[in-house]
Design a protein around this nucleic acid. Structure first.
Lengths: 338, 338
DNA sequence: TCGGCAGGGTGAATCGTTTCAAGCACGATA
DNA sequence: TATCGTGCTTGAAACGATTCACCCTGCCGA
């Protein structure tokens, strides 16, 4: 039980102990049927004897391949992304692949760091929710031979495949719903437009307003928050409540944000929806179970991830763009009596 | 724009283009100050020219080290684990390390697969929420030199460090709270006892019952569900409702499960807490915002992850066990008037 | 007896880095 | 002038696997 850091056993240690050549040990590992049973057993006992674990770097360096894919999302603590990740994992699992997950935290620099890490280690490919509209680094990686699939972003590029949900349609549907209920002054608690989803949802809201004969300039207040989580929603909503002409309805960029909004509204004793109607986005698991069940835009998260992994594993290099349609789920945060 | 898969540029391609030796290129990469500015510039332009990305496997094979750590949790879709992951990331980030996250899905085989993957690729260490009580494979990996920190599990082993929250105490506190409210017949919707947290929480419940003068045999019904998520909680609760002598209060093994329980109770028109009091575990972000705000046991998730990463990065090989104390957060799902 | 063949096994070359002893050029010092 | 640094650069060894051309040993059939 020494703390002596004795070097990890290598394939040649195994070969020596089993009295065979390294080539034979490698064969036992990779093509056992090419080796005579007696020899194979000898090698296998040597392997357990030495507690041998092959060095993945060496294997990969020589053989070139690896059955791992990477995914970079904006925030692992957001159920939307983890649901997508589950979809990815399920598809990769079918193919015997494993997934490494990383979180960019909406920081382009972190995203680049992880992208590079994945690329340097030769993963099969990477699925990325980009933190910025600038895809140059991703296209460059693609040109270098790395498979890249854009997640939750309809690619304007024709070199990168993408899987996304139609954010304009989702936001527009939510907006139309509010207009149908008679609201004429809306707030949108949104993230930076440098995040594509945020920009698209804003566009969808404006389009629906215009379509409904309202001027987005006067009918809409957009509040920008630094991070798309509950705390962001809470402070964003405080800003909304402080406005001179207070809107009668709020759209939130996601359900976590809406959670914070509900918290702020409760704290300010504003009833929902009579004092303020609220719509979320993502329809995460808890949306229907909140104090005021939340009207939200449901996205096919699992399918999204599944399809992204599918594109990644596809043998050919064809570029494909897939857009799923979201679905508005109406609950009491807009139609209730509170 | 050919699809021709031209080989990735290597360090010697760069050397040739810049008319220097490979050693110099390596120096530019790793110790730029050792290289004359003129040469350095020449090499750098060659690098951008060729769009050179170093091969991580080769680097690692030679140099041995890598600044990445791995974490294996039971379920990335559970906010508890992702909050812990955030804590880990934050600490690793300080040290310039990156985190690779993987989900075992409560499956020991998947856990083993990821552990091996991490080990083969030579990560600095691995933080694991074990899916089974059997730690042999983890101890073996530790003996091979891999740094392993047990997450959310007070290690019975003296070779593995661990970071955990006192689950018996948390469950006991929740139980005492219910007993104090006059409940005498409880249900516990729990996962398999092969998961340590589940076993410990069950023990905590029983201990508190005994302490309160109740016989766990008669005062407690434990329902075992296959997966610790909302769906599991929903079906588990249906079983509870179908019991002959229906309990008056339910403990749920986590908040996701409690979410499912609330759903099932609403569907069955059972008021909370008057018809059934409910306690969750984890105090996730949305617990306080539910239709019936949920009494829950709060865990210091972020701190948990932070400290685990801290132990992993610690230079010495000392084994340390840290146990944090949970805190009961009381809300209307036990004390309300519904 | 000999050629051919097949099943097993060998060991050197290879992958792309890092590392390090050694060499080189040139100015400063004795 | 001889000696010594000093600052850059070089080139080959090493890391630990896979791969592949080749060798050996028996055995079979002619």
């Amino acid at each position: 039980m020494a703390t002596t850091t004795r070097r990890r056993a290598s394939i040649s240690d195994v070969a020596r102990l089993a009295q065979v050549s390294v080539g034979t040990v490698s064969n036992v590992l990779n093509r056992p049927d090419r080796v005579a049973p007696a020899t194979r057993d000898r090698v296998l006992t040597a392997i357990t004897e030495l507690d041998f674990v092959p060095n993945g770097s060496a294997r990969q360096l020589r053989a070139g391949t690896i059955t791992t894919a990477g995914a970079i999302v904006l925030d692992v603590a957001n159920p939307f992304f983890t649901d997508v990740a589950r979809g990815i994992e399920d598809r990769l699992d079918e193919a015997g692949y494993t997934l490494m997950l990383a979180s960019s935290d909406e920081d382009p620099e972190r995203e680049a760091r992880y992208l590079r890490l994945f690329e340097e280690h030769g993963v099969q490919g990477v699925m990325v929710v980009p933190a910025t509209p600038d895809l140059a680094h991703l296209e460059a990686a693609r040109a270098r031979g790395l498979r890249v699939v854009l997640l939750d972003r309809p690619s304007p590029s024709d070199t990168l495949s993408s899987v996304a949900v139609d954010d304009r349609a989702g936001a527009a549907a939510a907006t139309r719903h509010l207009l149908g209920l008679g609201h004429e002054r809306l707030a949108f608690v949104n993230g930076s437009h440098s995040i594509r989803q945020c920009a698209d949802r804003a566009a969808g809201v404006r389009a629906a307003l215009a379509e409904g004969g309202l001027d987005p300039q006067t009918a809409l207040v957009e509040i920008t928050i630094p991070s798309l989580n509950a705390d962001g929603g809470q402070t964003g909503t405080q800003q909304v409540l402080a406005l001179n002409e207070r809107p009668t309805a709020m759209l939130c960029v996601n359900d976590l944000t809406a959670l914070g909004a509900l918290r702020a509204l409760r704290a300010a004793d504003v009833p929902v929806p009579s004092g303020m109607a609220v719509v979320g986005y993502d329809d995460v698991a808890f949306a229907g179970e909140l104090a005021t069940p939340l009207t939200s835009v449901r996205q096919p998260t699992h399918q999204l991830g599944h399809h992204a992994a599918d594109l990644l594993l596809r043998p050919d290099d064809a570029v494909e763009h897939v857009t799923f349609q979201p679905e508005l789920v109406i609950r009491e945060s807009t139609t209730g009596t509170g």
